[in-house]
Protein backbone atom coordinates (compact mmCIF):
# COMPACT_ATOMS: atom_id res chain seq x y z
CA UNK A 1 0.00 0.00 0.00
CA UNK A 2 2.71 2.39 0.96
CA UNK A 3 4.56 2.27 -2.39
CA UNK A 4 1.27 2.81 -4.14
CA UNK A 5 0.49 5.91 -2.07
CA UNK A 6 4.01 7.17 -2.66
CA UNK A 7 3.62 6.68 -6.38
CA UNK A 8 0.28 8.41 -6.26
CA UNK A 9 1.75 11.37 -4.44
CA UNK A 10 4.62 11.56 -6.88
CA UNK A 11 2.13 11.53 -9.75
CA UNK A 12 0.10 14.25 -8.07
CA UNK A 13 3.22 16.33 -7.62
CA UNK A 14 4.05 15.97 -11.28
CA UNK A 15 0.55 16.93 -12.26
CA UNK A 16 0.55 19.95 -10.03
CA UNK A 17 3.59 21.46 -11.75
CA UNK A 18 1.94 22.25 -15.07
CA UNK A 19 -1.15 23.39 -13.21
CA UNK A 20 0.93 25.90 -11.29
CA UNK A 21 2.72 27.06 -14.41
CA UNK A 22 -0.36 27.60 -16.52
CA UNK A 23 -1.86 30.76 -15.16
CA UNK A 24 -5.60 30.98 -15.08
CA UNK A 25 -7.26 33.52 -17.30
CA UNK A 26 -7.81 36.99 -15.93
CA UNK A 27 -10.78 38.80 -17.32
CA UNK A 28 -12.90 41.91 -17.06
CA UNK A 29 -16.48 41.64 -18.22
CA UNK A 30 -18.43 44.86 -18.80
CA UNK A 31 -22.23 44.82 -18.68
CA UNK A 32 -22.17 46.40 -22.16
CA UNK A 33 -19.71 48.33 -24.31
CA UNK A 34 -22.04 50.68 -26.20
CA UNK A 35 -24.02 53.26 -24.29
CA UNK A 36 -26.47 55.98 -25.16
CA UNK A 37 -26.30 59.34 -23.42
CA UNK A 38 -24.06 60.53 -20.62
CA UNK A 39 -26.06 59.31 -17.63
CA UNK A 40 -25.30 55.64 -18.16
CA UNK A 41 -23.33 53.32 -15.90
CA UNK A 42 -21.24 50.34 -16.79
CA UNK A 43 -20.85 47.61 -14.21
CA UNK A 44 -17.88 45.29 -14.52
CA UNK A 45 -17.13 41.79 -13.23
CA UNK A 46 -13.47 41.02 -12.67
CA UNK A 47 -12.33 37.47 -12.06
CA UNK A 48 -9.72 34.82 -12.67
CA UNK A 49 -10.93 31.50 -14.04
CA UNK A 50 -10.39 29.00 -16.85
CA UNK A 51 -13.87 28.94 -18.35
CA UNK A 52 -14.94 32.23 -19.91
CA UNK A 53 -16.81 34.07 -18.56
CA UNK A 54 -17.72 32.12 -15.43
CA UNK A 55 -16.47 33.13 -12.01
CA UNK A 56 -15.54 29.92 -10.28
CA UNK A 57 -11.97 30.35 -9.09
CA UNK A 58 -10.63 33.66 -7.77
CA UNK A 59 -11.63 37.31 -7.88
CA UNK A 60 -9.43 39.75 -9.76
CA UNK A 61 -8.23 42.25 -7.15
CA UNK A 62 -9.25 45.85 -7.67
CA UNK A 63 -6.15 47.46 -6.06
CA UNK A 64 -4.58 48.35 -9.39
CA UNK A 65 -7.81 48.92 -11.34
CA UNK A 66 -7.98 52.33 -12.99
CA UNK A 67 -10.53 54.22 -15.03
CA UNK A 68 -9.53 56.52 -17.89
CA UNK A 69 -11.98 59.11 -19.17
CA UNK A 70 -12.36 59.86 -22.91
CA UNK A 71 -10.04 62.88 -22.58
CA UNK A 72 -7.28 60.68 -21.11
CA UNK A 73 -7.59 61.87 -17.52
CA UNK A 74 -8.23 59.47 -14.68
CA UNK A 75 -11.83 58.70 -13.76
CA UNK A 76 -13.55 57.24 -10.73
CA UNK A 77 -14.23 53.61 -9.93
CA UNK A 78 -17.33 53.29 -7.74
CA UNK A 79 -19.02 50.64 -5.62
CA UNK A 80 -16.03 48.31 -5.76
CA UNK A 81 -16.42 45.03 -3.90
CA UNK A 82 -14.51 41.78 -3.89
CA UNK A 83 -16.33 38.55 -3.21
CA UNK A 84 -15.21 34.97 -3.03
CA UNK A 85 -15.16 34.44 -6.78
CA UNK A 86 -15.30 37.85 -8.39
CA UNK A 87 -14.84 41.53 -7.91
CA UNK A 88 -17.41 43.98 -9.15
CA UNK A 89 -17.42 47.74 -9.64
CA UNK A 90 -19.27 50.50 -11.46
CA UNK A 91 -18.17 53.42 -13.59
CA UNK A 92 -20.48 56.32 -14.31
CA UNK A 93 -20.05 57.21 -17.98
CA UNK A 94 -20.79 60.90 -17.59
CA UNK A 95 -18.69 62.10 -20.51
CA UNK A 96 -19.20 61.19 -24.17
CA UNK A 97 -16.57 59.11 -25.90
CA UNK A 98 -14.54 55.98 -25.31
CA UNK A 99 -13.46 55.08 -21.76
CA UNK A 100 -10.71 52.69 -20.78
CA UNK A 101 -10.82 50.53 -17.67
CA UNK A 102 -7.56 48.79 -17.01
CA UNK A 103 -5.27 47.10 -14.59
CA UNK A 104 -1.53 46.77 -15.05
CA UNK A 105 1.04 44.64 -13.31
CA UNK A 106 4.78 44.43 -13.48
CA UNK A 107 7.04 42.28 -11.39
CA UNK A 108 10.37 40.54 -11.33
CA UNK A 109 10.38 36.79 -10.94
CA UNK A 110 13.15 34.27 -10.91
CA UNK A 111 15.27 31.82 -9.04
CA UNK A 112 18.87 31.22 -8.04
CA UNK A 113 20.87 28.56 -6.22
CA UNK A 114 23.07 28.97 -3.18
CA UNK A 115 25.10 25.87 -2.23
CA UNK A 116 22.81 23.78 -4.40
CA UNK A 117 19.61 25.01 -2.72
CA UNK A 118 17.12 26.73 -5.03
CA UNK A 119 15.54 29.96 -3.87
CA UNK A 120 12.85 31.95 -5.61
CA UNK A 121 12.35 35.66 -6.04
CA UNK A 122 9.08 37.48 -5.57
CA UNK A 123 5.97 36.77 -3.57
CA UNK A 124 3.85 33.69 -3.95
CA UNK A 125 0.38 33.67 -5.35
CA UNK A 126 -2.60 34.01 -3.08
CA UNK A 127 -3.23 35.92 0.10
CA UNK A 128 -0.22 36.71 2.32
CA UNK A 129 0.56 33.99 4.84
CA UNK A 130 1.19 34.93 8.48
CA UNK A 131 4.77 34.45 9.67
CA UNK A 132 5.96 33.95 6.12
CA UNK A 133 9.41 35.40 5.44
CA UNK A 134 9.52 38.51 3.29
CA UNK A 135 9.80 37.65 -0.41
CA UNK A 136 13.30 37.75 -1.85
CA UNK A 137 14.23 40.50 -4.27
CA UNK A 138 17.02 40.86 -6.81
CA UNK A 139 19.05 42.69 -4.15
CA UNK A 140 18.97 39.55 -2.00
CA UNK A 141 20.86 37.47 -4.55
CA UNK A 142 24.23 36.75 -2.92
CA UNK A 143 27.53 36.99 -4.78
CA UNK A 144 28.06 33.23 -4.65
CA UNK A 145 24.68 32.44 -6.19
CA UNK A 146 24.60 30.20 -9.24
CA UNK A 147 21.96 29.47 -11.86
CA UNK A 148 20.57 32.98 -11.55
CA UNK A 149 17.53 33.38 -13.75
CA UNK A 150 15.57 36.60 -13.45
CA UNK A 151 12.54 37.40 -15.57
CA UNK A 152 10.67 40.66 -15.88
CA UNK A 153 6.92 40.10 -16.10
CA UNK A 154 4.38 42.69 -17.14
CA UNK A 155 0.77 42.61 -18.15
CA UNK A 156 -2.13 44.80 -19.13
CA UNK A 157 -5.78 43.92 -18.85
CA UNK A 158 -8.05 46.51 -20.44
CA UNK A 159 -11.61 46.99 -21.60
CA UNK A 160 -13.16 49.81 -23.59
CA UNK A 161 -16.68 51.17 -23.30
CA UNK A 162 -18.20 54.00 -25.30
CA UNK A 163 -20.89 56.53 -24.47
CA UNK A 164 -22.26 58.08 -27.66
CA UNK A 165 -19.81 58.37 -30.55
CA UNK A 166 -16.48 56.53 -30.15
CA UNK A 167 -13.19 58.39 -29.65
CA UNK A 168 -9.57 57.23 -29.72
CA UNK A 169 -7.68 59.28 -27.10
CA UNK A 170 -7.47 56.35 -24.66
CA UNK A 171 -5.60 54.25 -27.24
CA UNK A 172 -2.59 56.55 -27.20
CA UNK A 173 0.36 54.20 -26.64
CA UNK A 174 2.90 54.78 -23.89
CA UNK A 175 5.69 53.12 -25.88
CA UNK A 176 6.41 50.67 -23.06
CA UNK A 177 5.78 46.95 -23.21
CA UNK A 178 3.04 45.21 -25.14
CA UNK A 179 0.19 47.50 -26.15
CA UNK A 180 -3.03 47.44 -28.12
CA UNK A 181 -3.44 50.01 -30.92
CA UNK A 182 -6.72 49.16 -32.60
CA UNK A 183 -7.43 50.11 -36.21
CA UNK A 184 -11.04 48.90 -35.99
CA UNK A 185 -12.55 50.55 -32.92
CA UNK A 186 -13.08 47.84 -30.28
CA UNK A 187 -16.59 49.15 -29.59
CA UNK A 188 -17.60 48.84 -33.25
CA UNK A 189 -17.29 45.10 -33.73
CA UNK A 190 -19.97 43.35 -35.74
CA UNK A 191 -20.42 39.64 -36.48
CA UNK A 192 -19.46 38.86 -40.07
CA UNK A 193 -17.01 41.74 -40.35
CA UNK A 194 -13.27 41.43 -39.91
CA UNK A 195 -11.61 43.62 -37.31
CA UNK A 196 -8.03 44.82 -37.49
CA UNK A 197 -6.00 45.48 -34.38
CA UNK A 198 -2.38 46.54 -34.26
CA UNK A 199 -0.16 45.44 -31.41
CA UNK A 200 2.89 47.37 -30.37
CA UNK A 201 5.91 46.34 -28.39
CA UNK A 202 7.81 49.34 -27.01
CA UNK A 203 5.81 51.49 -29.44
CA UNK A 204 6.83 49.51 -32.54
CA UNK A 205 4.64 47.04 -34.48
CA UNK A 206 4.74 43.59 -32.88
CA UNK A 207 5.21 41.29 -35.88
CA UNK A 208 4.48 37.60 -35.54
CA UNK A 209 2.78 38.05 -32.18
CA UNK A 210 0.73 35.07 -30.96
CA UNK A 211 -2.82 36.04 -30.04
CA UNK A 212 -5.54 33.79 -28.63
CA UNK A 213 -9.21 34.64 -29.13
CA UNK A 214 -11.81 32.68 -27.16
CA UNK A 215 -15.58 33.22 -27.21
CA UNK A 216 -17.48 33.39 -23.92
CA UNK A 217 -20.19 30.93 -22.93
CA UNK A 218 -17.80 28.00 -22.49
CA UNK A 219 -20.17 26.11 -20.23
CA UNK A 220 -22.76 25.78 -22.97
CA UNK A 221 -20.63 24.12 -25.61
CA UNK A 222 -18.21 21.22 -25.80
CA UNK A 223 -15.17 22.71 -27.45
CA UNK A 224 -12.98 25.47 -26.16
CA UNK A 225 -13.38 27.36 -29.43
CA UNK A 226 -10.02 29.08 -29.06
CA UNK A 227 -8.38 30.50 -32.16
CA UNK A 228 -4.61 30.96 -32.27
CA UNK A 229 -3.84 33.91 -34.51
CA UNK A 230 -0.64 35.72 -35.47
CA UNK A 231 -0.01 39.35 -36.33
CA UNK A 232 1.50 40.23 -39.71
CA UNK A 233 4.78 42.01 -40.37
CA UNK A 234 3.03 45.32 -39.68
CA UNK A 235 1.88 44.09 -36.26
CA UNK A 236 -1.71 43.94 -37.45
CA UNK A 237 -4.05 41.16 -36.40
CA UNK A 238 -7.14 40.35 -38.46
CA UNK A 239 -9.96 38.76 -36.49
CA UNK A 240 -13.25 37.60 -37.94
CA UNK A 241 -16.27 37.24 -35.69
CA UNK A 242 -18.43 34.23 -36.51
CA UNK A 243 -21.16 35.17 -34.04
CA UNK A 244 -22.08 38.02 -31.75
CA UNK A 245 -21.02 37.78 -28.12
CA UNK A 246 -18.23 38.54 -25.71
CA UNK A 247 -14.72 37.42 -26.69
CA UNK A 248 -11.57 37.17 -24.61
CA UNK A 249 -8.35 38.16 -26.37
CA UNK A 250 -4.90 37.39 -25.01
CA UNK A 251 -1.51 38.16 -26.53
CA UNK A 252 1.77 37.04 -25.01
CA UNK A 253 5.32 37.81 -25.94
CA UNK A 254 8.70 36.83 -24.52
CA UNK A 255 11.89 38.56 -25.52
CA UNK A 256 15.33 39.37 -24.16
CA UNK A 257 14.90 43.12 -23.87
CA UNK A 258 14.54 43.22 -20.10
CA UNK A 259 15.54 46.46 -18.39
CA UNK A 260 15.45 45.40 -14.73
CA UNK A 261 18.80 44.66 -13.08
CA UNK A 262 19.99 41.08 -13.68
CA UNK A 263 16.87 40.22 -15.68
CA UNK A 264 17.68 38.34 -18.88
CA UNK A 265 14.18 37.83 -20.21
CA UNK A 266 10.91 39.69 -20.17
CA UNK A 267 7.44 38.23 -20.48
CA UNK A 268 4.59 40.51 -21.54
CA UNK A 269 0.90 39.85 -21.82
CA UNK A 270 -2.10 41.78 -23.00
CA UNK A 271 -5.72 40.88 -22.26
CA UNK A 272 -8.93 42.49 -23.36
CA UNK A 273 -12.59 41.54 -23.56
CA UNK A 274 -14.39 42.50 -26.75
CA UNK A 275 -18.09 42.70 -27.41
CA UNK A 276 -19.30 41.76 -30.88
CA UNK A 277 -22.83 42.76 -31.86
CA UNK A 278 -25.14 41.36 -34.52
CA UNK A 279 -25.22 43.31 -37.81
Amino acid sequence: MKPFVARLMAAAALLSIPAALSAHRMWLLPSATVFSGTDGWVTVDAAVSNDLFFFDHQPLRLDAMKVWQPDGSEGILQNGATGRYRSVFDVKLDKPGTWKISTQMSAVMGSFKVDGVEKRLGGRRGPPQPNAPAPLTVADIPANATDVKVTEVSGRNEIFVTAGAPTTTVFKPTGKGLEFAPITHPDELVAGETAKFRFLVDGKPAAGLKVTVIPGGKRYRNDEGARELTTGADGVLSVSWPTAGMYWLNATLTDAKATSPRATERRMSYVTTLEVLTP
Binding site: V34, F35, S36, G37, D39, T162, G164, A165, T278, P279
Partner: peptide, 22 residues
Protein backbone atom coordinates in the same frame (compact mmCIF):
# COMPACT_ATOMS: atom_id res chain seq x y z
CA UNK B 1 -35.07 60.00 -14.41
CA UNK B 2 -32.31 57.45 -13.91
CA UNK B 3 -33.22 55.51 -17.02
CA UNK B 4 -34.43 58.13 -19.53
CA UNK B 5 -35.97 57.05 -22.83
CA UNK B 6 -32.74 57.91 -24.64
CA UNK B 7 -30.88 55.20 -22.68
CA UNK B 8 -32.22 52.46 -24.95
CA UNK B 9 -31.53 54.19 -28.27
CA UNK B 10 -28.35 52.14 -28.59
CA UNK B 11 -30.56 49.03 -28.85
CA UNK B 12 -31.32 50.19 -32.38
CA UNK B 13 -27.77 49.01 -32.87
CA UNK B 14 -27.41 49.24 -36.65
CA UNK B 15 -28.79 52.78 -36.68
CA UNK B 16 -26.74 53.65 -33.61
CA UNK B 17 -23.55 52.62 -35.34
CA UNK B 18 -24.54 54.30 -38.60
CA UNK B 19 -24.79 57.71 -37.02
CA UNK B 20 -27.48 57.65 -34.34
CA UNK B 21 -24.79 57.85 -31.68
CA UNK B 22 -23.63 61.25 -32.90
Amino acid sequence: GNDPGTKWLADLRAWWRKGGRS
